[in-house]
Design a protein around this nucleic acid. Structure first.
Length: 347
DNA sequence: AATGCGTGGAT
DNA sequence: TATCCAAGCAT
Protein backbone atom coordinates (compact mmCIF):
# COMPACT_ATOMS: atom_id res chain seq x y z
CA UNK A 1 0.00 0.00 0.00
CA UNK A 2 1.08 3.57 -0.54
CA UNK A 3 0.97 6.19 2.17
CA UNK A 4 -2.43 7.35 0.90
CA UNK A 5 -3.76 3.81 1.33
CA UNK A 6 -4.23 2.90 -2.30
CA UNK A 7 -2.66 -0.19 -3.73
CA UNK A 8 0.56 0.25 -5.58
CA UNK A 9 1.04 -1.41 -8.93
CA UNK A 10 4.32 -2.78 -7.64
CA UNK A 11 2.66 -4.35 -4.60
CA UNK A 12 3.41 -8.08 -4.41
CA UNK A 13 -0.26 -8.91 -3.99
CA UNK A 14 -1.38 -6.70 -6.88
CA UNK A 15 1.20 -8.10 -9.24
CA UNK A 16 0.41 -11.65 -8.23
CA UNK A 17 -3.37 -11.26 -8.50
CA UNK A 18 -3.07 -9.68 -11.93
CA UNK A 19 -0.96 -12.65 -13.00
CA UNK A 20 -3.48 -15.05 -11.46
CA UNK A 21 -6.33 -13.43 -13.38
CA UNK A 22 -4.59 -14.53 -16.58
CA UNK A 23 -2.87 -17.75 -15.56
CA UNK A 24 -4.91 -19.47 -12.85
CA UNK A 25 -5.09 -23.21 -13.30
CA UNK A 26 -8.62 -24.51 -13.88
CA UNK A 27 -9.19 -27.20 -11.25
CA UNK A 28 -12.33 -29.18 -10.37
CA UNK A 29 -12.41 -27.84 -6.80
CA UNK A 30 -11.66 -24.23 -7.70
CA UNK A 31 -13.71 -21.22 -8.81
CA UNK A 32 -12.25 -19.01 -11.55
CA UNK A 33 -10.49 -15.84 -10.31
CA UNK A 34 -12.86 -13.28 -8.88
CA UNK A 35 -15.88 -15.59 -8.78
CA UNK A 36 -17.76 -16.81 -5.71
CA UNK A 37 -16.04 -19.71 -3.98
CA UNK A 38 -17.06 -23.38 -4.21
CA UNK A 39 -18.96 -25.00 -1.34
CA UNK A 40 -16.82 -25.34 1.81
CA UNK A 41 -17.23 -29.13 1.53
CA UNK A 42 -15.42 -29.19 -1.80
CA UNK A 43 -12.69 -26.85 -0.58
CA UNK A 44 -12.13 -28.95 2.54
CA UNK A 45 -12.17 -32.28 0.69
CA UNK A 46 -9.71 -31.07 -1.92
CA UNK A 47 -7.39 -29.52 0.66
CA UNK A 48 -7.20 -32.71 2.68
CA UNK A 49 -6.57 -34.80 -0.43
CA UNK A 50 -3.89 -32.37 -1.57
CA UNK A 51 -1.87 -32.65 1.65
CA UNK A 52 1.53 -33.87 0.44
CA UNK A 53 -0.16 -35.14 -2.70
CA UNK A 54 0.02 -33.99 -6.31
CA UNK A 55 -2.87 -32.43 -8.20
CA UNK A 56 -2.75 -35.21 -10.80
CA UNK A 57 -3.09 -37.90 -8.14
CA UNK A 58 -5.99 -36.13 -6.44
CA UNK A 59 -8.20 -35.46 -9.47
CA UNK A 60 -9.75 -38.93 -9.92
CA UNK A 61 -10.27 -39.36 -6.17
CA UNK A 62 -11.95 -35.97 -5.86
CA UNK A 63 -14.27 -36.86 -8.75
CA UNK A 64 -15.19 -40.21 -7.23
CA UNK A 65 -15.68 -38.89 -3.68
CA UNK A 66 -17.92 -36.01 -4.76
CA UNK A 67 -19.90 -38.39 -6.98
CA UNK A 68 -20.48 -40.89 -4.17
CA UNK A 69 -20.79 -38.36 -1.36
CA UNK A 70 -21.95 -34.99 -2.77
CA UNK A 71 -22.26 -33.34 0.65
CA UNK A 72 -20.54 -33.46 4.00
CA UNK A 73 -23.73 -34.97 5.44
CA UNK A 74 -23.57 -37.81 2.92
CA UNK A 75 -19.95 -38.45 3.81
CA UNK A 76 -20.77 -38.33 7.51
CA UNK A 77 -23.35 -41.08 6.98
CA UNK A 78 -20.95 -43.35 5.06
CA UNK A 79 -19.46 -46.40 6.80
CA UNK A 80 -15.85 -45.70 7.65
CA UNK A 81 -14.61 -48.83 5.87
CA UNK A 82 -16.18 -47.68 2.60
CA UNK A 83 -14.40 -44.36 2.83
CA UNK A 84 -11.11 -46.09 3.65
CA UNK A 85 -11.51 -48.37 0.64
CA UNK A 86 -12.28 -45.39 -1.59
CA UNK A 87 -9.12 -43.69 -0.33
CA UNK A 88 -6.96 -46.72 -1.15
CA UNK A 89 -3.98 -45.77 -3.29
CA UNK A 90 -3.92 -42.11 -2.28
CA UNK A 91 -1.65 -42.66 0.73
CA UNK A 92 -1.38 -41.18 4.22
CA UNK A 93 -4.40 -43.12 5.39
CA UNK A 94 -4.81 -41.27 8.66
CA UNK A 95 -6.25 -38.57 6.43
CA UNK A 96 -9.16 -40.86 5.53
CA UNK A 97 -9.82 -41.78 9.14
CA UNK A 98 -9.79 -38.09 10.11
CA UNK A 99 -11.91 -37.24 7.08
CA UNK A 100 -14.75 -39.34 8.44
CA UNK A 101 -14.34 -37.97 11.96
CA UNK A 102 -14.32 -34.43 10.63
CA UNK A 103 -17.37 -34.96 8.40
CA UNK A 104 -19.33 -36.34 11.35
CA UNK A 105 -18.33 -33.42 13.57
CA UNK A 106 -19.29 -30.92 10.89
CA UNK A 107 -22.62 -32.61 10.16
CA UNK A 108 -23.35 -32.71 13.88
CA UNK A 109 -22.79 -28.97 14.28
CA UNK A 110 -24.76 -28.13 11.14
CA UNK A 111 -22.00 -27.01 8.80
CA UNK A 112 -18.36 -25.99 8.58
CA UNK A 113 -17.06 -23.33 10.96
CA UNK A 114 -16.29 -20.15 9.01
CA UNK A 115 -13.29 -19.07 11.06
CA UNK A 116 -9.72 -20.23 10.99
CA UNK A 117 -9.77 -21.12 14.70
CA UNK A 118 -12.98 -23.09 14.35
CA UNK A 119 -11.62 -25.04 11.41
CA UNK A 120 -8.29 -25.64 13.12
CA UNK A 121 -10.04 -27.52 15.93
CA UNK A 122 -11.39 -30.21 13.56
CA UNK A 123 -9.65 -33.57 13.02
CA UNK A 124 -7.16 -33.62 10.16
CA UNK A 125 -7.12 -29.82 9.84
CA UNK A 126 -3.82 -28.22 10.79
CA UNK A 127 -2.46 -24.72 10.45
CA UNK A 128 -2.17 -24.80 6.68
CA UNK A 129 -5.54 -26.38 5.92
CA UNK A 130 -7.45 -24.16 8.37
CA UNK A 131 -5.95 -21.05 6.81
CA UNK A 132 -6.57 -22.30 3.28
CA UNK A 133 -10.25 -23.12 3.89
CA UNK A 134 -10.82 -19.84 5.74
CA UNK A 135 -9.35 -17.89 2.84
CA UNK A 136 -10.66 -19.90 -0.11
CA UNK A 137 -14.12 -20.90 1.09
CA UNK A 138 -14.91 -17.94 3.36
CA UNK A 139 -12.83 -15.08 1.95
CA UNK A 140 -11.10 -14.46 5.25
CA UNK A 141 -7.67 -12.96 5.36
CA UNK A 142 -5.35 -15.73 6.53
CA UNK A 143 -1.67 -16.54 6.35
CA UNK A 144 -1.66 -19.59 4.11
CA UNK A 145 1.74 -21.27 4.10
CA UNK A 146 2.35 -24.53 2.32
CA UNK A 147 5.53 -25.84 0.69
CA UNK A 148 4.90 -23.71 -2.41
CA UNK A 149 4.53 -20.54 -0.38
CA UNK A 150 7.61 -21.39 1.66
CA UNK A 151 9.60 -21.65 -1.53
CA UNK A 152 8.20 -18.50 -3.14
CA UNK A 153 8.68 -16.41 -0.02
CA UNK A 154 12.11 -17.83 0.79
CA UNK A 155 13.23 -16.77 -2.68
CA UNK A 156 11.40 -13.45 -2.76
CA UNK A 157 13.19 -12.37 0.42
CA UNK A 158 16.33 -14.50 0.00
CA UNK A 159 15.82 -16.15 3.38
CA UNK A 160 19.17 -17.64 4.36
CA UNK A 161 18.01 -19.62 7.36
CA UNK A 162 17.32 -23.26 6.56
CA UNK A 163 14.02 -25.07 6.98
CA UNK A 164 12.43 -26.01 9.27
CA UNK A 165 13.91 -23.24 11.44
CA UNK A 166 12.99 -20.61 8.88
CA UNK A 167 9.27 -21.32 9.14
CA UNK A 168 8.61 -18.55 11.65
CA UNK A 169 10.33 -15.90 9.54
CA UNK A 170 8.67 -17.15 6.36
CA UNK A 171 5.29 -17.06 8.00
CA UNK A 172 5.84 -13.48 9.15
CA UNK A 173 6.98 -12.41 5.69
CA UNK A 174 3.93 -14.08 4.13
CA UNK A 175 1.67 -12.26 6.56
CA UNK A 176 3.22 -8.97 5.50
CA UNK A 177 2.30 -9.44 1.83
CA UNK A 178 -1.11 -11.16 2.21
CA UNK A 179 -3.96 -8.81 1.20
CA UNK A 180 -7.34 -8.53 2.94
CA UNK A 181 -9.21 -8.52 -0.36
CA UNK A 182 -9.31 -11.63 -2.55
CA UNK A 183 -7.70 -13.67 0.21
CA UNK A 184 -8.55 -16.98 -1.44
CA UNK A 185 -7.29 -15.95 -4.85
CA UNK A 186 -4.05 -14.69 -3.32
CA UNK A 187 -3.44 -17.98 -1.53
CA UNK A 188 -4.14 -20.00 -4.64
CA UNK A 189 -2.06 -17.63 -6.75
CA UNK A 190 0.93 -18.21 -4.49
CA UNK A 191 0.49 -21.94 -4.85
CA UNK A 192 0.06 -21.79 -8.62
CA UNK A 193 3.18 -19.66 -8.84
CA UNK A 194 5.10 -22.19 -6.80
CA UNK A 195 3.73 -25.12 -8.76
CA UNK A 196 4.31 -23.74 -12.25
CA UNK A 197 6.87 -20.93 -12.18
CA UNK A 198 8.78 -20.77 -8.92
CA UNK A 199 9.40 -24.50 -9.05
CA UNK A 200 11.74 -26.45 -6.81
CA UNK A 201 14.14 -27.15 -9.64
CA UNK A 202 14.91 -24.74 -12.47
CA UNK A 203 12.52 -21.92 -11.63
CA UNK A 204 11.17 -20.08 -14.68
CA UNK A 205 12.00 -16.58 -13.53
CA UNK A 206 11.36 -14.91 -16.92
CA UNK A 207 7.68 -15.86 -16.52
CA UNK A 208 7.41 -14.64 -12.95
CA UNK A 209 5.31 -11.57 -12.14
CA UNK A 210 7.46 -10.98 -9.05
CA UNK A 211 10.85 -11.27 -10.76
CA UNK A 212 11.61 -7.56 -10.49
CA UNK A 213 11.02 -7.69 -6.73
CA UNK A 214 12.79 -10.96 -6.05
CA UNK A 215 15.86 -10.82 -3.82
CA UNK A 216 16.56 -14.46 -4.52
CA UNK A 217 16.76 -13.81 -8.21
CA UNK A 218 19.18 -10.95 -7.63
CA UNK A 219 21.57 -13.38 -5.93
CA UNK A 220 21.89 -15.15 -9.27
CA UNK A 221 20.91 -18.53 -7.87
CA UNK A 222 17.28 -18.48 -6.74
CA UNK A 223 17.05 -22.28 -6.79
CA UNK A 224 19.20 -22.52 -3.70
CA UNK A 225 16.28 -21.15 -1.65
CA UNK A 226 14.81 -22.37 0.58
CA UNK A 227 17.80 -23.98 2.22
CA UNK A 228 17.03 -27.30 3.88
CA UNK A 229 18.53 -29.50 6.53
CA UNK A 230 20.06 -32.66 5.05
CA UNK A 231 17.81 -35.68 5.25
CA UNK A 232 18.49 -39.03 6.80
CA UNK A 233 19.12 -42.18 4.81
CA UNK A 234 16.19 -44.56 4.52
CA UNK A 235 16.68 -48.04 5.95
CA UNK A 236 15.96 -51.08 3.80
CA UNK A 237 13.64 -53.77 5.15
CA UNK A 238 12.45 -57.12 3.90
CA UNK A 239 9.24 -58.94 4.59
CA UNK A 240 6.75 -61.48 3.32
CA UNK A 241 3.09 -61.24 2.30
CA UNK A 242 0.97 -64.39 2.33
CA UNK A 243 -1.52 -65.00 -0.49
CA UNK A 244 -3.97 -67.71 0.60
CA UNK A 245 -6.38 -68.62 -2.17
CA UNK A 246 -9.35 -70.96 -2.11
CA UNK A 247 -12.42 -71.37 -4.35
CA UNK A 248 -11.88 -68.08 -6.15
CA UNK A 249 -11.32 -66.13 -2.93
CA UNK A 250 -8.31 -64.72 -1.12
CA UNK A 251 -7.88 -64.27 2.62
CA UNK A 252 -7.69 -60.59 3.60
CA UNK A 253 -7.16 -59.02 6.99
CA UNK A 254 -7.65 -55.50 8.29
CA UNK A 255 -4.65 -53.68 9.71
CA UNK A 256 -4.79 -52.03 13.14
CA UNK A 257 -6.34 -48.58 13.20
CA UNK A 258 -3.08 -46.78 13.90
CA UNK A 259 0.34 -46.90 12.34
CA UNK A 260 1.42 -48.01 8.88
CA UNK A 261 -1.50 -48.38 6.48
CA UNK A 262 -3.71 -48.20 9.54
CA UNK A 263 -7.29 -49.34 9.10
CA UNK A 264 -6.71 -50.63 5.58
CA UNK A 265 -7.43 -54.09 4.18
CA UNK A 266 -4.26 -56.04 3.60
CA UNK A 267 -2.69 -59.40 2.97
CA UNK A 268 -1.44 -61.25 6.03
CA UNK A 269 2.28 -60.58 6.52
CA UNK A 270 5.22 -61.65 8.66
CA UNK A 271 5.41 -58.58 10.84
CA UNK A 272 7.74 -56.34 8.84
CA UNK A 273 7.81 -52.69 9.88
CA UNK A 274 9.86 -49.54 9.49
CA UNK A 275 11.92 -50.64 12.47
CA UNK A 276 12.60 -54.26 11.55
CA UNK A 277 12.28 -56.80 8.78
CA UNK A 278 9.72 -59.59 8.98
CA UNK A 279 10.57 -62.96 10.46
CA UNK A 280 9.35 -65.04 7.50
CA UNK A 281 7.02 -67.18 9.60
CA UNK A 282 3.93 -68.30 7.64
CA UNK A 283 0.54 -67.93 9.36
CA UNK A 284 -0.41 -71.53 8.54
CA UNK A 285 1.61 -74.58 7.57
CA UNK A 286 1.34 -75.71 3.96
CA UNK A 287 2.95 -76.06 0.56
CA UNK A 288 3.87 -72.41 0.06
CA UNK A 289 5.07 -71.44 -3.39
CA UNK A 290 7.23 -68.34 -4.00
CA UNK A 291 5.66 -65.89 -6.47
CA UNK A 292 8.49 -63.39 -6.55
CA UNK A 293 8.95 -60.05 -4.83
CA UNK A 294 7.76 -56.48 -5.07
CA UNK A 295 9.63 -53.36 -4.07
CA UNK A 296 7.94 -50.41 -2.46
CA UNK A 297 9.35 -47.14 -1.21
CA UNK A 298 7.70 -45.61 1.83
CA UNK A 299 8.51 -42.18 3.18
CA UNK A 300 10.89 -43.49 5.80
CA UNK A 301 12.05 -46.91 4.57
CA UNK A 302 12.28 -49.13 1.52
CA UNK A 303 10.64 -52.52 1.55
CA UNK A 304 11.30 -55.64 -0.48
CA UNK A 305 8.29 -57.84 0.01
CA UNK A 306 8.39 -61.53 -0.90
CA UNK A 307 5.06 -62.90 -2.03
CA UNK A 308 4.23 -66.46 -1.04
CA UNK A 309 1.21 -68.35 -2.36
CA UNK A 310 -0.80 -71.16 -0.81
CA UNK A 311 -3.67 -72.69 -2.77
CA UNK A 312 -6.51 -74.49 -1.04
CA UNK A 313 -5.24 -73.57 2.39
CA UNK A 314 -7.18 -73.19 5.58
CA UNK A 315 -7.62 -69.65 6.92
CA UNK A 316 -5.06 -68.59 9.49
CA UNK A 317 -6.18 -68.00 13.06
CA UNK A 318 -7.53 -64.57 13.81
CA UNK A 319 -9.84 -62.09 12.11
CA UNK A 320 -10.11 -61.96 8.35
CA UNK A 321 -12.41 -62.54 5.39
CA UNK A 322 -12.51 -64.49 2.17
CA UNK A 323 -12.62 -61.88 -0.56
CA UNK A 324 -13.81 -62.77 -4.09
CA UNK A 325 -10.98 -62.50 -6.61
CA UNK A 326 -13.28 -61.11 -9.30
CA UNK A 327 -13.96 -58.09 -7.07
CA UNK A 328 -10.46 -57.54 -5.74
CA UNK A 329 -10.38 -53.92 -6.92
CA UNK A 330 -13.24 -53.16 -4.56
CA UNK A 331 -11.28 -54.42 -1.54
CA UNK A 332 -9.42 -51.13 -1.36
CA UNK A 333 -5.93 -52.52 -0.93
CA UNK A 334 -3.21 -49.92 -0.45
CA UNK A 335 -0.71 -49.83 -3.27
CA UNK A 336 1.88 -52.08 -1.62
CA UNK A 337 -0.63 -54.93 -1.30
CA UNK A 338 -2.17 -54.23 -4.69
CA UNK A 339 1.32 -54.78 -6.11
CA UNK A 340 1.71 -57.97 -4.09
CA UNK A 341 -1.68 -59.20 -5.31
CA UNK A 342 -0.68 -58.63 -8.94
CA UNK A 343 2.52 -60.55 -8.34
CA UNK A 344 0.66 -63.44 -6.70
CA UNK A 345 -1.84 -63.69 -9.52
CA UNK A 346 0.83 -63.38 -12.23
CA UNK A 347 2.36 -66.53 -10.80
C1' DA B 1 10.27 -30.57 18.07
C1' DA B 2 11.58 -34.56 15.80
C1' DT B 3 9.47 -38.45 13.96
C1' DG B 4 6.06 -41.43 11.58
C1' DC B 5 3.20 -41.61 7.95
C1' DG B 6 2.18 -43.31 1.04
C1' DT B 7 2.44 -42.72 -3.43
C1' DG B 8 3.65 -41.61 -8.21
C1' DG B 9 5.90 -38.48 -11.29
C1' DA B 10 9.98 -35.82 -12.73
C1' DT B 11 14.79 -35.54 -13.30
C1' DT C 1 18.50 -46.62 -10.58
C1' DA C 2 18.54 -43.08 -7.02
C1' DT C 3 16.79 -39.02 -5.37
C1' DC C 4 13.71 -35.50 -4.70
C1' DC C 5 9.49 -33.85 -4.05
C1' DA C 6 3.99 -32.60 -3.56
C1' DA C 7 -1.90 -27.71 -1.29
C1' DG C 8 0.90 -31.46 6.08
C1' DC C 9 -1.00 -33.54 10.35
C1' DA C 10 -0.64 -35.80 14.80
C1' DT C 11 1.93 -36.80 18.57
Amino acid sequence: MTASGERSETDVASLLLAWYDRHARALPWRAPPGEPPPAPYRVWLSEVMLQQTTVAAVKPYFAEFTRRWPTVEALADAPEEEVMAAWAGLGYYSRARNLVKCARAVAERGGFPDTEAGLRALPGIGDYTAAAIAAIAFGRRAVVVDANVERVVARLFAVEEALPGARKAIRAATGAIAPAARAGDFAQAMMDLGAGVCTAREPRCPLCPLAALCAGRRTGDPARFPRKAPKKAKPARTGTAWWIERDGHVWLVRRPGRGMLGGMRALPDDGWSARASGDGTPPVAGAWRPAGAVRHGFTHFDLELQVMVLEGGAPPPGEGEWWPLDALDAAGLPTLFAKAARRARAG
